[in-house]
Design a binder for these strands. Structure first.
Length: 498
RNA sequence: GGUCCGUUCGUCUAGGGGUUAGGACACGUCCCUUUCACGGAUGAAACACGGGUUCGAUUCCCGUACGGACUACCA
């Protein structure tokens, strides 16, 4: 086997990808790039009942948006194809049989109803039912019935599952890169189902077999998998693959912004932010918001997500994908879960928006304007907004004359001096041929000087007369964009109305 | 209930046997300014608790509390 780093992101196509899954994919990708390895995408669709149309395409598009390129896997192919577990179905039974033949696994014929009843019974006595060394001798499986009887049942088409025969008393331990040694006693583990009665493998079997076959070097996944990691170790051992077993790294969870528990769709809805990278159309037709559609920039999301559970140990906050690759190490990932703070995401968005060139912003968000004008508008708003669509909104608002005027500003700033100054300014405007900020300011200055009025006395009044509000970007630049005739009209109206 | 994992400002976190416990977001104040924002400065704000080990523990160990994940023929 090679020493090459090979990691995989292995989601289930059960719907839109949760933002936590995006972070998991990102960490996998960062490690792969950092160590010159390969990033695989494997689709874990062994549960046919949960398959959702379009989910796979969604996953691929989401990864692509975030900037993760897949080296091998669904959508791109590779030496270990197919990468969709449903298409690998046939081989899993062979591996399960290998375990049956070596006595590491066994057939079980207990029905779901029987097992449920068993759980009920145990629960009523205050204990938990486990299908393991302590109980399997009393259940319906190939360990309690004869070989002939077992074969007869199978031949008769009776449904069965294959379970791992977990050792009765054995200390199972493995080294997690993030959590160090984790140990569990096998007596507390279940004889997990490996092959389901529909002929599909469970996650546990499929994941171990595929990771082995695909030569995965590091399994980087969410903390929710930590409890089943010992089982996977046992599986590697049962197959005799322990010496090539991948290294494990279980990532801390993304938590609710407030209160306790892991981040859910509900939290996102009540917090007014998305939880999916891209908008997703639910089967019922409703649309779930996506970060992309809400105006979050992909590189801002990458930076934000990377810092949720990891940090470089320096005081640098802004990292491009390349810089992240450079700085990333699994060892610097935190153990504790991280609360999802959308404020921080917004801050990153603002930072990255400012980093975008005026040209990019102008052409992508103000395509209906002449480039020259669009650039001026971008310049005006770029540093004042968090989301790019706000630029569009502000731009449109710029060309709509105010219908109401901010009362607070009017009462405090709209006085005789202001009126005099604005009137003079307005009257002088028609003679101004080159209607640009500097010239406009000159005119204003000259007129006010003639009247002996200070600039500060009229600025706010002029602003409210022009835009209706008391806050905004540079007024002179705004006027330049609005245009001479429109400004004059607005001032006349304000003078008449106020 | 059982198993496993975790716990530094409100949040994301740095640090690690002796520090004024550092940074970022958010928040307050001030400066800049035609206002708001940006930017700059500044302030308030944290080692869950109890034992041990030690000259000394926020840091190491053990408990407790609290939180989380898992506990399906789902992943």
């Amino acid at each position: 086997m090679s020493n090459q780093v090979r990691v995989r992101f292995a989601p289930s196509p059960t719907g839109a990808l949760h933002i936590g899954g995006v972070r998991t994919a990102l960490y996998n990708y960062l490690l792969a790039k950092k160590l010159g390895g390969k990033m695989l995408l494997r689709i874990e669709d062994t549960d046919q009942t949960r398959f959702v149309e379009g989910a796979e395409d969604y996953i691929i598009e989401a990864l692509s948006w975030i900037g993760i390129t897949i080296d091998e896997g669904v959508g791109v192919g590779g030496p270990h194809a197919p990468y969709r577990q449903s298409e690998r179905k046939a081989m899993y039974m062979d591996y399960a049989m290998q375990l049956i033949n070596s006595g590491k696994a066994y057939y079980a014929f207990d029905s779901s109803e029987e097992l449920d009843a068993m759980r009920q019974a145990f629960e009523s006595q205050g204990s938990a039912f486990q299908y393991n060394a302590a109980t399997r001798g009393r259940l319906k499986n190939s360990l309690t019935i004869s070989e002939e009887e077992t074969q007869a049942k199978i031949a008769a088409g009776e449904p069965f599952v294959i379970r791992l025969k977990v050792p009765a008393k054995e200390e199972v331990r493995f080294k997690d890169i993030i959590r160090d040694w984790v140990h569990v006693h096998s007596s507390t583990m279940d004889d997990k189902v490996l092959m389901k009665s529909d002929g599909m493998p469970t996650y546990h079997l499929a994941n171990v077999v595929d990771d082995h076959l695909m030569e995965i070097s590091h399994v980087i996944r969410g903390e929710e998998w930590l409890p089943s990691a010992p089982l996977h170790v046992l599986l590697y051992r049962a197959f005799g693959w322990e010496d090539t077993m991948p290294q494990f790294a279980h990532l801390p969870l993304l938590l609710k912004p407030e209160g306790n528990g892991k981040l859910s769709k509900r939290d996102a809805d009540s917090g007014g932010f998305p939880i999916f990278p891209l908008a997703w159309k639910n089967p019922d037709g409703s649309i779930a918001k996506g970060f992309r559609e809400e105006g979050y920039l992909n590189d801002a999301m990458v930076n934000f997500l990377a810092f949720l559970g990891w940090n470089p140990g320096t005081e640098q906050e802004l990292f491009s994908m390349d810089e992240l690759v450079e700085a990333f190490t699994l060892e610097r990932i935190n153990k504790a879960g991280a609360k999802f703070d959308i404020n921080k995401a917004k801050w990153f968005n603002q930072q990255y928006l400012k980093l975008r060139s005026d040209e990019t912003l102008a052409t992508t968000y103000l395509p209906d304007f002449e480039l020259d004008k669009a650039l001026k508008i971008v310049h005006l708003f770029k540093e004042r907004v968090t989301f790019p669509q706000e630029i569009t909104k502000e731009a449109d608002a710029l060309f709509v004359a105010p219908t109401t005027y901010d009362e607070a500003v009017v009462t405090s700033k709209w006085n005789d001096d202001a009126k005099k100054g604005i009137t003079a300014f307005k009257d002088a405007l028609p003679t101004l041929d080159n209607f640009v900020a500097d010239e406009i300011k000159h005119v204003l200055n000259d007129e006010l000087q003639k009247l002996g009025i200070k600039m500060g006395k009229v600025m706010q009044a002029l602003r409210v007369a022009t835009t209706g509000v008391g806050a905004g970007p540079d007024l002179m630049l705004s006027m330049e964009i609005i245009g001479k005739e429109a400004v004059i009209t607005r001032l006349e109206k304000a003078l008449a109305v106020l």
